[in-house]
């Protein structure tokens, strides 16, 4: 429970440890452990959990009180059974929302399995081996690595290929995670499927939205990089994409009632000036009359 000491008192009710009831502890994950489930769990994790818990193993969660757990922490994994993790996700507490209402049982089970996949000591209750077995290609294909990108404009498809070196020859890197996205002002818009990895040929394919507006010339920049920088180093590629042209709204050139003083509506100026001229014209005429009266007096 050492790690849970980090969960500092949030309210009087919430004590430092978060344990679920014994019964729930003993529950098992309703979704059996499998590669497929882990993969699906990763997608759910990225969409729902990452915003607070950060990337697993990088300890980059939000600085909240209590601190969101990084699930690569062995103490946490040791202290919690599958049932415990599943119920914590389901019921929530304090800052941790109750996902029972938001995610399906399948999704919650998948996330539990995804979290569990970071536990090297884990022995899946139902289907064993899969998680523990090292992935075959990893040890064989090594540096230098090559990342290549191809754009198929006709089908709006991007193909990213990650190759490594094996026995002095180029060989595909399998199961590597790539980011494929389009550059935007604040951050890149991902177009690959979340958690997608390279296949046996070292390839990830992604469709890009050709209707995405991107500048007045409709040019966008495609960015591809390898997520695991520790292993592959900084490896990235970019390419130009032909996207939709935008027509910026020229708020500063529009004549409107809300526009600035220079952009008054013409009809308004005409109306205003005519009224002012007529009224002050009459007054001017009256003043002329006064001068006439004065002249007669002299």
């Amino acid at each position: 429970m050492a790690i849970l000491v980090l969960l500092m008192p949030f309210t009087l009710m919430a004590q430092s440890d978060w344990t679920v009831s014994d019964a729930k502890q003993k529950d098992s994950n309703p979704i059996a452990y499998s590669d497929k489930s882990v993969k699906a769990g990763k997608v759910v994790y990225l969409g729902n959990c990452k915003s607070c818990h950060g990337d697993v193993g990088k300890d980059n969660g939000l600085p909240l009180m209590p601190k969101p757990t990084d699930f690569a922490n062995q103490a946490f994994l040791d202290a919690n059974t599958d049932g415990s993790i599943f119920h914590k996700i389901t019921d929530g507490r304090a800052t941790m929302p109750a996902y029972g209402a938001i995610l399906s049982e399948q999704q919650r089970g998948d996330v539990t399995n995804y979290i569990r996949s970071f536990d090297p000591n884990y022995k899946p209750q139902a289907s064993a081996q899969a998680a523990a077995t090292p992935k075959s290609n990893d040890t064989e294909v090594g540096a230098p690595y090559f990342l290549d990108v191809k754009v198929d404009e006709a089908n709006s498809e991007v193909t990213a290929i990650l190759m490594g070196t094996f026995n002095g020859e180029k060989a595909p890197v399998v199961d590597a995670e790539l980011f494929i996205g389009i550059k935007r002002y604040f951050n890149n818009l991902p177009i690959m499927e979340a958690g997608d990895v390279t296949n046996e040929e070292g390839v990830i394919k992604a469709n890009y939205p050709a209707d995405l507006p991107s500048g007045e010339e409709g040019k966008g920049e495609l960015l591809v990089y390898v997520v695991d920088q520790e292993k592959f180093g900084e490896l990235n590629q970019s390419a130009e994409l032909k996207l939709q042209a935008t027509h910026p709204s020229h708020f500063n050139e529009t004549r409107a009632l809300w526009a600035d003083r220079g952009n008054f509506p013409i009809w308004l100026m005409v109306t205003y000036l005519s009224i002012v001229l007529i009224v002050w014209g009459v007054m001017a005429k009256v003043v002329m009359n006064l001068i006439k009266i004065k002249k007669i007096g002299n």
Partner: peptide, 8 residues
Amino acid sequence: FGDLNEDA
């Protein structure tokens, strides 16, 4: 938060 002209 983002840019409508970028649809992002």
